[in-house]
Design a binder for these strands. Structure first.
Lengths: 225, 225
DNA sequence: TCTTATTGTTAGTATTACTAACATTTTTGA
DNA sequence: TCAAAAATGTTAGTAATACTAACAATAAGA
């Protein structure tokens, strides 16, 4: 399994980039360093110029790969969720019990993907990036166009997989998709809250409270009480 | 009750502004028009210059009231949650049953504040603004400084009130604050999802699904099953 | 009426987001 | 093997943004 994970090259929607970053050295160093730098500076202070100087290239060169920094964020986000889906598929491959599979899925959402030193992007870094920045990439005026061009496919696919597990457990539950998207988004926000708005939550950044909270929440919600 | 709501002037943390916008005509027209314009353009395309030209003033004049557009957003956000708290207090004042009060609170979070044509800001407009833009105001690198200067006091106060209701219903429930912040944040995101990422949810923008979803989720979660 | 607070105006700077034009290198296929 | 085509890289720019400074005009208050 480790070697398979190591070799995984995720397919993301080609509308996300101008030129596939994995088709060249420069492209790879762009996404690699961007992951670090966006996290370090935050989207508002991140610029292609700063990124260019970090990787010894120029602004214009980066624009050939990504239309702008917003698209680069969406690209990394898509990559993250595709990676999450791989993790889910592998981790649940030989689990028959749907409740067990749901447990794995929730753990994945709460704790982020497994750490594997892989060839392309570090999923641990990517998780931090997604916690801090990804929602800003959704909540924009351009979301409708982006939605239409299929840019959120990875997020959708991941969500659908977990919805399917829920429907397996309780076929009469009315809101599987709403529940799944709530957990996907809230697990990120609660991670953020525990670090920056501690009064809004009982959870500690590295504690197991979030996992317990979300597991209990989901299990109770989909049960026929 | 109506006349009281009409007269309510919310107190927000003075770190949010340079000069109290309710201390002058210009200030009032800034916050009033900003609510509309931020919503129309989205934060990324909103500028003080555009706002100034709408209200027949100048950029520099607006900078006298707010340090930058980010602080203006946080100001409007604080105003929103303070208004929400007023709504909650009035709507639950004569309800004894904590479960009934919780129901009112959830409805408020899901549907936003009551519409009252009031003297200052239109809560309906503000709700749309908060749905689309407010989370971007939290998820920043400056959140820790802002947190320290008490800028999120209104959000906290609203959350604490509802946590208290939950603790009244079930004093043994472990995560009241986490649950409340989840509902506060997710109800906004689900509103957004229903409009822009419809595949992520069963809810329709104007339907009652979200309310049912969140009510069921909270009631089941805090029950001792 | 004199003082103070409030607004308006002009004019600037540094940075950001992006593009055009062209030079250089690499690939490829005849 | 080598010329044409494709991919990359570099330089140099523009328009817009996010501010700030300095000062003039106006209104309000004691």
């Amino acid at each position: 399994m480790e070697s398979i994970l190591k070799k995984i090259r995720v397919d993301v929607n080609s509308n996300l980039y101008q030129k596939d970053p994995f088709s060249s050295e420069l492209g790879v160093s762009i996404v690699r360093e961007a992951t670090r730098l966006i996290q370090e500076l935050g989207m508002e202070n991140f610029t292609f110029k700063k990124l260019a100087s970090k990787i010894g290239s120029t602004e214009a060169a980066i624009y050939r790969y990504f239309e702008n920094k917003h698209m680069l964020l969406l690209y990394l986000n898509a990559w993250y969720w595709a990676w999450m889906e791989h993790n889910l598929v592998f981790a649940t491959a030989n689990l028959i019990d749907p409740e067990e599979r749901l447990g794995v899925a929730i753990r994945l959402m709460v704790d982020g993907p497994l750490y594997r030193e892989n060839d392309f992007l570090d999923p641990k870094q990517l998780h931090l990036l997604v916690v801090n920045e990804s929602l800003k990439g959704y909540l924009t005026k351009t979301v409708d166009n982006e939605h239409e061009s299929g840019i959120f496919a990875q997020v959708y696919k991941f969500g659908e997989r977990i919805s399917a597990i829920i429907q397996e457990i309780n076929p009469t539950y009315q809101f599987p998709k709403t529940l799944v998207s709530t957990v996907m988004e809230s697990s990120l926000l609660q991670n953020f809250n525990s670090r920056h708005l501690p009064g809004m939550t009982e959870a500690k950044p590295e504690g197991g409270e979030r996992l317990n909270f979300f597991k209990e929440l989901v299990v109770k919600t989909i049960s026929n009480a």
